[in-house]
Design a protein around this nucleic acid. Structure first.
Lengths: 233, 233
DNA sequence: TCAAGTAATATTGTCGACAATTTTAAGATT
DNA sequence: AATCTTAAAATTGTCGACAATATTACTTGA
């Protein structure tokens, strides 16, 4: 097997080139190495990754399906452009879907899993108290809790849509606006309230609280975007 | 009924072969010309449609993104298999998303559009009273109302997901179970109640009623599937 | 007869070349 | 100088061929 590709590609090593490329490009977009709105040149990227245009095109089509790029016939693909309306639309969908996930979790989550989630929140609490690793809490920590709830829904399609599509885009918005204005302690309080509702099997309440929680996050992001000037579009 | 493949292709004529193929294949799957679970042979289909494997593969990748086929590396693509769990998962998502759409519609729908929707329901009513065109009411008519609500949400991402992905799969389930047990008069009553809530700008109520409406449809489909024996999987 | 191994076949994955279209550059006309 | 034409270049779309992998058919040995 030839290892002529760039170092990046050698690390992943999946069954097919096109899968690897899709993963690579997705990461590059979410992490901002491919800027929003920038053109995706097939020839250029193919040379860069050391592959032919065939699998690269397949990867691009996949990314279009994930909503990370837009394609126009005979013109090409571009990374999506971030704007306020799309962000709000995305969060509205997230609100509906993750609210439903919280409801389902409240109906089916086992006592064992509930206990483990409380432990996770305690861990977040101590992180905050010790003022350590603040960046983790801001981003990964928050997502950890949400992802656990989402998976607890046991709804395969819901899980896939939220984790593989929406969260990628949400992370783009968060990174791009360098969203520092969220209050992690407030978020943690809301997480506890949601988990309490789930532990008590109160589906209605869990959904309501999850929705409010996400709606607040959306409003904060909106303010951040308006100050960043990204709201124009 | 089944026209020769090449003729169909000539009729559509989009900018790119791969787009046409994706459309053709999507229709073939939803209408059952490609049976659930059946293998999608690249060589065979390419010959059948008179194109090379390149654009055909692109179309297949698109269909995978739409959730109509599943692909495994080095093995190939198959039309998705219908089963009870996936149906229920899909309808749960639909419940969350279309409930949200009804809420949004209640907030923003203009008086003009409300009037037009009442007219549509009156039309459905007379169709039922005259016992004509029952098939239309059963399928297209019902969808007409839902699609209008969905578009009224003005949430681009919500609209795309529901109309381009979920509804295709929902139609597959309906067709496959030859879902005759739904009561169109009951459905029409529920549509009226939903529209009343929207007309009064009662978002909470509109969402609640839409959810119940979809939940009922889901339960009916479930019963139909259990009698059809499709529930086994 | 069955199982395991192996060769033959078929199918998918990848590549490079050509065709069609768009974008850029240059030139002509006013 | 600005605008419209036209030619050149670059980019995407499509094709056929080959490589890699999976599936089938066959053989062998117990």
């Amino acid at each position: 097997m030839t290892r002529l590709a760039t170092d990046n590609l050698a690390l992943i090593k999946s069954a097919t080139l096109s899968e690897d490329l899709a993963q690579q490009l997705s990461n590059a977009i979410v992490q901002g190495h491919l800027a929003q709105g920038s053109k995706i040149s097939e020839a250029e990227l193919a040379k860069q990754y050391g592959v032919s245009r065939g699998p690269l095109r397949e990867a691009i089509v996949k990314l279009e399906g994930l909503g990370l790029v837009t394609r126009t016939a005979n013109v090409g693909a571009r990374v999506i452009e971030l704007n306020l309306k799309d962000m709000l639309d995305t969060f509205t969908m997230r609100e509906a879907l993750e609210g439903m996930a919280a409801r389902l979790a409240a109906e089916t989550m086992t006592q064992n899993e509930v206990t483990r989630l409380y432990a996770l929140l305690d861990q977040h609490q101590s992180h905050l108290d010790n003022n350590q690793d603040e960046q983790y809490m801001q981003q990964g920590g928050n997502d950890d809790f949400h992802l656990r709830i989402i998976h607890a829904s046991q709804n395969t399609k819901l899980i896939r849509l939220l984790t593989e599509e929406l969260y990628a885009i949400i992370r783009m918005y968060r990174r791009h606006t360098s969203d520092q204005r969220s209050d992690p302690r407030q978020a943690l309080r809301e997480h506890r309230a949601i988990l309490d509702a789930i532990a008590n099997h109160e589906g209605d309440l869990a959904e309501l609280l999850m929705r409010r929680h996400i709606s607040r996050a959306s409003q904060l992001l909106k303010q951040a975007m308006e100050k960043t000037g990204l709201a124009s579009h």
